[in-house]
Computed example of a mutant assay.
Amino acid sequence: MMPLGRLTLLTVVAMIAFASNSLLCRVALRDTNIDAAGFTAVRLISGALMLWFILSMQGRRRDNAGSWPSALALFSYAALFSFAYIDLAAGTGALILFGAVQATMIGYGLYSGERFSALKWAGLLLAIAGLVGLVLPGLTAPPLVASLLMAGAGIAWGVYSLRGRGAGDPSLATAGNFIRAVPMAVALAAMGWISGSLNLDLYGMFWATASGALASALGYLIWYAVLPHISAANAATIQLSAPVIAAIAGVLLLGEAVTLRLLLASAAILGGIALVIQQRAR
């Protein structure tokens, strides 16, 4: 059993890494000249290289780990995520992403025959109401197209997570999926180059590499090291902290505004999902 102090530290680091993806993407697309396709390509390529390097240093063979459908889900998440953050604030994007991920996984549970108690239904409806309230038209509403793109990214990540269940060693599977996603990322960048929109700004590439190699690759490896030592319900609950961290960091580091709509939507989405998770655990 992992010592509690180390377990706590690794958990905190993993959540900061997950939240950092939103911050790194937002700052790159807002403050540098890199475009969304270029950011996606650099992020996935650097993540694949980091995972390959670490597993090689450990003497672990990837062989045929991962799958092409999972790689497609991973690429779809990364691409939609990048294009959404052209117009979304870091905290808002992280909240929509997380809500869509959890809605996808909860929806799959319902489709698979999982029974919901009255409290679980109440939690699900509260979370859905929070998402709808967040994107309803109004002065403080986030851009609708960007919100839909981020919701699509969340659905893709939910599919990726569901496909990862029972896929064997998650570190090897993640490395295999990242490597398979590289040709897709290169194709996206090539389309940008052909259309004249591709821009691989140096500072933007730095942030994209940090997102891929550190926040994504290392973040996933750390999280997978933690997961065997905590329950599934606790793991899902802990992940509620990621959009909160992203929102707080967005305000403190990027100067993003806090609106009443965002606060109320956050409370509804995160509170509703937490209720579903806790009822599942019971």
Rank of each mutant, 00 (worst) to 15 (best):
Y203L: 15
I34H: 08
F98W: 10
S171D: 14
M57K: 14
G176D: 05
A89M: 10
A236K: 10
A225R: 12
L252F: 09
L139N: 15
G99Y: 00
D31A: 14
T174R: 07
S195G: 14
V182L: 03
Y224F: 15
A233M: 14
R163Y: 11
L262K: 09
A249R: 02
Y160V: 03
D87E: 15
A94M: 09
L131N: 04
G272H: 09
P137W: 07
A89R: 06
A100P: 01
L23Q: 02
L252E: 06
G212V: 04
Y111L: 14
R61F: 13
I106D: 03
L240E: 06
A167D: 14
A41T: 06
M57S: 12
S76H: 06
L198P: 00
A215T: 04
C25A: 15
A265N: 11
W157V: 04
G59F: 10
F116C: 04
A217G: 05
P142K: 11
W223A: 07
A210S: 11
G5H: 14
A28S: 08
S266N: 03
V145K: 11
L23W: 03
I277R: 00
P69T: 09
Y111G: 09
A71Q: 02
G91F: 06
L23Y: 03
Y203F: 15
P69A: 11
A84N: 07
A215C: 08
G166P: 06
I269Y: 01
G196N: 09
T8I: 12
S46V: 04
L97K: 02
A213T: 08
W52P: 05
I194S: 13
A79N: 01
E114N: 10
A14G: 08
S67A: 10
I106K: 04
S82D: 08
L221I: 10
I273G: 01
V182S: 03
R280Q: 15
L51R: 05
P170W: 10
I248R: 08
G113E: 01
A189D: 02
G166K: 02
S22H: 11
G250H: 06
F98R: 10
